[in-house]
């Protein structure tokens, strides 16, 4: 299943400058593994050695943060849009 992934500005240099890439995957975990396979420079940037999402990385499937879904087991399907965003200080402050 082909899923579109949007990369944040800060990760684009390691992905050949691309803002959006397509990856075949059925879960977020598979998707990240597929991304790293395509762009080895992303190794270690998204997931730590123990296989959990790094703390300043937020991954959204169709706008929903996967930390509050099934984390890396969150399913993705054809046509889903996955966004990877850095955790930043929120606005309302």
């Amino acid at each position: 299943m082909s899923v579109d992934v949007r990369l944040p500005t800060v990760l684009r240099p390691q992905a050949g400058g691309r803002a959006e890439v397509s990856v075949d995957a059925s879960t977020v975990g598979e998707l990240i593994a597929g991304l790293v396979q395509q762009f080895p420079g992303l190794e270690g940037q998204l997931v730590d050695a123990s296989g959990t999402l790094r703390r300043f990385v937020n991954v959204y499937v169709n706008d929903d943060d996967v930390r509050y879904l099934d984390q890396l087991d969150t399913p993705v399907a054809d046509g889903d849009v996955v966004s990877i965003l850095p955790a930043v200080a929120g606005g309302s402050c």
């Binding site: 300043f56 990385v57 966004s83 955790a87 930043v88 929120g90």
Partner: peptide, 21 residues
């Protein structure tokens, strides 16, 4: 609910500049 803040902030140099309150 959050705005796509991480998308709008382009001054971030690396993921380690991220922030969690």
């Amino acid at each position: 609910i959050e705005p796509p803040a991480g998308e709008m902030v382009d001054g971030l140099r690396s993921l380690e500049d991220g922030y969690i309150p």
